[in-house]
């Protein structure tokens, strides 16, 4: 993604309520604005406060019209939870970039025993069938190690920055602007660790 290629780039960020999906998409949207793109970011603030699927559509380009992305159109899918990655995999275009946080959060349909959470190799097969450009990121583990499980979202942004071969300074500037002072250092650390680990 450079300013020369102004074709619209479609991002989708998916996760579970409480994982910071919306914050991550806000940071990416702000990054897009600072890089000179037109930006549209759409999400549904639904009923569930915690535990429901959260989806954010983000489109960057010269002039962006539709707020949401259709199936098969997503260039970059950022998933903060494995099952959500699988749920939205058909939005990814063939060969699109997929980042998956190596993290499981069982939904109520699993905890009450009605359905089973797919095995890891099943997940791997689903992702491999969709794209050869998929990457597991140890977002949850890294966030735990640096002392705050909530910053896994920013770990993934670090990994994304590396995989898209973008400047870390642009991301870090946005993180500095958008996050409150007391959370800044841990988020910068999360970003850098995610960048290095990828």
């Amino acid at each position: 993604m450079t300013q020369e290629t102004m074709k619209t780039t479609n991002f989708m960020l998916v996760g579970v309520g409480g994982q910071g999906t919306i914050l991550a998409s806000n940071l990416l949207a702000e990054l897009g604005v600072q890089l000179g793109y037109d930006v549209k970011k759409a999400e549904v603030h639904g009923m569930s406060q915690r535990g429901g699927s959260v989806v954010s559509h983000l489109r960057l380009g010269r002039q962006v019209f539709a707020p949401i992305v259709s199936k098969g159109q997503v260039d970059i899918l950022l998933a903060f939870e494995q099952l959500e990655a699988a749920r939205y995999i058909d939005y990814l275009r063939p060969g699109g970039l997929l980042l998956i946080n190596d993290f499981v959060m069982k939904p109520a349909s699993v905890t009450n025993g009605k359905q089973t959470y797919p095995e890891r190799d099943k997940m791997e097969a689903i992702f491999a069938a969709a794209t050869d450009n998929h990457h597991w990121v140890q977002g949850a583990k890294i966030a735990d190690q640096i002392g705050n499980p909530k910053v896994a979202n920013v770990v993934l942004l670090g990994a994304l920055c590396r995989l898209m071969d973008m400047h870390t300074a642009d991301y870090e500037a946005v993180i500095e602007q958008r996050l409150p002072a007391k959370l800044l250092q841990i988020n910068l650390k999360a970003f850098r660790t995610g960048h290095q680990a990828t």
Binding site: R87, A108, S109, P118
Partner: peptide, 9 residues
Amino acid sequence: IPQRHSVLC
């Protein structure tokens, strides 16, 4: 893919 319905938190 198990559903993730809204449930009481």
